[in-house]
Design a binder for these strands. Sequence first.
DNA 1: GCGACAG
DNA 2: ATCTTGTCGC
Length: 220
Amino acid sequence: MEIFHEHSWDLTIAEAKVVQEKLKNKVILEDQLPTINYVAGVDVSYDKQKGITQAAIAVLNFPQLELQTHALARCKTAFPYVPGYLSFREIPAILEALNAVTIQPDLILCDGQGTAHPRRLGIACHLGVLINKPTIGVAKSWLTGDYEQVPLTQGSWQPLTSEGETIGAVLRTRTGIKPVFVSPGHQISLPTAIRYTLACTSKYRLPETTRWADKLAALQ
DNA sequence: GCGACAG
DNA sequence: ATCTTGTCGC
């Protein structure tokens, strides 16, 4: 896995903020997708006792959404969880898992925000810019931004806005179920990110990619 | 100063 | 994220 914008992971919060301000200028919010044959979900779990971070990547074929392969990677937890800086805690392990997986995905769905972030560089953007690949942020809960009530029917969505700009969408993936927060990560537009999120979702609230990664990350 | 805060 | 039983509803 080639890294495009290498930087240290041994940083203070203030230094991490500088990295975010610099990398946000590298984010591409236009569609630059290849033919999508494989989609992946990434997720991270923690062993609080041992101070270990474990990342899982699940690669599914598209549009069938059947699990093709997966990889796990563990590394020492080196960064605390601070809202707005999640990527500095999770990406090191994710890069190792991506390095180990045998089928490189054409699109990655991340567990967390993309541009719906205080400095527009959520984990999906950060990962996408580093590996120069299309990514989408699909978060289970709110981090920042304002939005109106979302209609109850599946596929309905409302823009997530901040300071006059649209930074993502609150999307109802299942009728009557709590919506998810979708935002572009890298090399993708918001409408396309919404379309692929729905295309990767079948019977449950979360995309199949995320559900598989969640399940695999829980393995020890 | 007060409230909010992805995983 | 993680700690945790039963329970309401399709």
